[in-house]
C-alpha cells in the first residue's frame, strides 16, 4: 500500500467528510468515508468532458455551478442522471488511477468541503484501490513494458503487415500523435480518459505499430570513465579499482595500515 492509500483508508475508517488535497496533483472528496469525487491534474474532469463534447458552454456550466448545481444541471435536461453517474464514475476511476500512486507532496485534509458534482456515485476506498490494481494488471497483460506510457507516441512509418484493425481511440491517438506528445498529453487533446489512451497505446505497441524508443544519448559526466563498448572478444576488465604504483596511493595505504594498527 502506498502512503496515499493508507491515508485514505484511515479517513474511510473515521467516516470523514471533506476534501483531501494532494499538492497540485489533485483533490479527493470524501463523504462519510466514501469517495464521491476525485480530480487529477493529468486527467479530464467531468466539467471538461461536458464542455469538450459540446454539451454545454463553459460559461453556462459556471453559472450552473454557482446557482443550482447538480440538481439544476439534471433538471435542464442536457444530461440524464445515468449519464452523469457514469461520467462521474469514469472520471473518478481515471483520476484515481493516476493520483493514487503519487507520493511526495504532503496531502492536506480540509473537513467539510464538498464538490458540486459529488454525491452521484459513492466509492469505497478498498474498491477503488482494487479497481486501479486490476487496470494496471490489464495494461501489463496487453503489453508488459510501461515504457510506452510516458514516452512520446511515435507510430511507425510503415505497417509491418498488410492490414490492421484499429478501434476508435487508437485511431484518434494515431491522428493526433505528432512524435512529441506523450500519451497523457494526447489524452488531453482528444478529450478522452488517460486510461483509455494508455490502453490504446499499449495495444498499438503490442501490434508493433509504435517505433522503438529512441536510445537516450549517453550523458557525459566529468570524471567518470566512459563505459567501454561491448565486445565479446575483448579481455575482461580487471576486478576492483585500477591499481597503480602511484605515490599518493602508496601514501594512503601506509596511513591506513598505521590507523588499523593503532586500533588494535
Amino acid at each position: 500500500m502506498t502512503k496515499l492509500d493508507t491515508l485514505l483508508a484511515g479517513l474511510a475508517r473515521e467516516r470523514s467528510t471533506g476534501a483531501l488535497r494532494v499538492g497540485r496533483s489533485g483533490t479527493i472528496f470524501l463523504s462519510e468515508g466514501r469517495v464521491t469525487y476525485m480530480e487529477c491534474a493529468q486527467t479530464p474532469s467531468v466539467e471538461r468532458l461536458l464542455t469538450a463534447r459540446g454539451r454545454m458552454t463553459e460559461t453556462a456550466l459556471r453559472a450552473l455551478r454557482a446557482d443550482g448545481g447538480c440538481a439544476r444541471l439534471l433538471q435542464e435536461g442536457s444530461i440524464t442522471p445515468g449519464e452523469l453517474q457514469y461520467a462521474v464514475l469514469g472520471a473518478v476511476l481515471d483520476a484515481a488511477f493516476f493520483l493514487l500512486p503519487m507520493s511526495g507532496t504532503r496531502p492536506k485534509f480540509r473537513p467539510g468541503e464538498e464538490h458540486w458534482l459529488g454525491g452521484q456515485w459513492f466509492f469505497d476506498v478498498a474498491g477503488l484501490v482494487r479497481e486501479c490494481a486490476r487496470r494496471r494488471a490489464q495494461l501489463a497483460e496487453i503489453w508488459p513494458s510501461a515504457e510506452v506510457d510516458s514516452l512520446p507516441v511515435r507510430p511507425v512509418e510503415r505497417l509491418p503487415g498488410h492490414a490492421v484493425t484499429l478501434n476508435r481511440v487508437q485511431w484518434e491517438v494515431l491522428v493526433r500523435a505528432d512524435h512529441q506528445a506523450t500519451p497523457l498529453e494526447v489524452a488531453k487533446r482528444i478529450g478522452r480518459s488517460g486510461y483509455s489512451v494508455l490502453l490504446a497505446v499499449r495495444r498499438l505497441a503490442a501490434a508493433g505499430l509504435l517505433a522503438p524508443p529512441m536510445p537516450e544519448l549517453p550523458k557525459r559526466v566529468r570524471g567518470e570513465r566512459a563505459r567501454p563498448p561491448h565486445d565479446r572478444e575483448a579481455a575482461p576488465l580487471p576486478l576492483g579499482p585500477p591499481t597503480t604504483g602511484d605515490r599518493t596511493d602508496l601514501a594512503l595505504l601506509t596511513r591506513l595500515k598505521k590507523a588499523l594498527e593503532e586500533l588494535s
Binding site: L49, A87, V169
Partner: peptide, 8 residues
Amino acid sequence: ETLFEGPL
C-alpha cells in the same frame, strides 16, 4: 454511446 467515452 454516452457523454463519457464508454461505450456503456
